[in-house]
Amino acid sequence: MKVKLRNPDRQVELAGGRVIREVLDELGVNPDTVLVIKDGELVTRHDHVGEGDELEVRPVISGGSA
């Protein structure tokens, strides 16, 4: 399964066949701090991801001053 990470942009290969929460756990990512997009659709951490799926893990935290 291909996983696209942002800030900085990079791609990793991880095992599919599990729920997204487990993928985020492996990445050390707090589910409340990212959008997870599976094949172009927004999904929750409870959704299942298959080996052939493509995920984007998109951070939502910004730190600007105003």
């Binding site: 800030n7 951070p59 935290i61 910004s62 730190g63 600007g64 001053s65």
Partner: peptide
């Protein structure tokens, strides 16, 4: 714009 400002790393608010 998804990218974070390149100058913000280490920002206290973050």
């Amino acid at each position: 714009v998804v990218d974070e400002c390149p100058l913000v790393a280490g920002n206290t608010q973050l």
